[in-house]
């Protein structure tokens, strides 16, 4: 099929500050990948092919956060070239693990880590894509779930709302009949305030939820933190629990700061 006669919508995948795990979820789709490749023209996806077609694109998937001056400019170009823009993963939706720099001084980190700090040119913060350009849909997770990714792609192409739940992980535990670790064993678990989507993987293997999918809708983090403290967690532990891959998501960030041993800034 020549490019001119190809009426399939175009899909582009973009990477900013990230580990590539989320965009690789697209390749992980395996069987369904062939169907996706049939339904869309993958115009730009460096993890799959060096071939790149110029925009505009019907749908852009954006992975990663904005941490450099160059990326802050590049995301504007991506937005201009994209009819619809969907961000994928904790980096793109909340700033990612590299968002930990937002709680400290990036300059101090650089001075400590690098032999030649003057070689490093970076922003003081790691911020989500939506802090820079309008985003049509945010798909959460560290990493994202590939079935959810397929649903989002198909929904965007069909012009309908994706069916992605924003309720708690608890509901996935209950659906698979996992015994609640928080209630039965006082295990620290972020499930009640974390967005579903992973299928409640960790509690099913005896570990409380790490909060990989970020805050659920109307997450009452203060109430859950109160319970964890009652169970004997130290404030610093609670602060750290909320300060991982989604540390930059407002509900988690606030709870993390509220439980910092130091006075909050």
């Amino acid at each position: 099929m020549s490019a001119a006669s190809d009426r399939r919508p175009t899909l582009a995948v973009w990477k900013f500050a990230s580990c590539d795990g989320c965009q690789l979820s697209l390749l992980d789709c395996e069987e369904e990948l062939l169907a996706v490749a049939g339904a869309v023209h993958i115009a730009q996806f460096t993890e799959m092919s060096r071939a790149a077609v110029e925009g505009p694109y019907d749908l852009s998937l954006v992975e990663g956060s904005i941490t450099t001056y160059e990326d802050a400019a590049r995301i504007q170009e991506v937005r201009r070239a994209s009819h619809r823009l969907v961000t994928i993963g904790a980096c793109a939706t909340a700033g990612g693990i590299q968002g930990l720099r937002n709680f400290a001084s990036a300059g101090e980190y650089i001075a400590t880590v690098y032999a030649r700090p003057d070689y490093i040119s970076t922003l003081a913060t790691s911020t989500p894509i939506a802090a820079h350009v309008p985003v049509d849909f945010e798909l959460h997770g560290c990493p994202i779930d590939r079935h959810q990714l397929l649903e989002v792609i198909l929904a965007q192409l069909a012009g309908r709302s994706p069916r992605i739940p924003s309720h708690s992980v608890c509901q996935e535990c209950k659906a698979r009949d996992t015994v609640c670790l928080l209630v039965s064993r006082r295990a620290p678990c972020l499930g009640p305030v974390t967005r579903a989507g992973c299928g409640a993987l960790c509690p099913a293997v005896d570990r409380g939820c790490f909060g990989c999918f970020g805050p659920a809708e109307t997450a009452n983090t203060a109430s859950l933190a109160g319970r964890l403290l009652e169970d004997g967690a130290r404030r610093v532990d609670v602060s750290r629990l909320f300060r991982t891959f989604n540390a930059g998501a407002p509900a988690f960030r606030e709870e993390s700061l509220a439980n910092e041993p130091r006075p909050t800034r």
Partner: peptide
């Protein structure tokens, strides 16, 4: 103030009956 809105009470309840449906299609 305390409620997590996590939904645990409804899912462990022996009489709560709410469900949702979704349509799916495959290749």
């Amino acid at each position: 103030e305390r409620c997590l809105a996590c939904g645990n009470c409804t899912l462990v309840c022996p009489t709560c009956f709410c469900s949702t449906v979704e349509d799916a299609s495959d290749v």
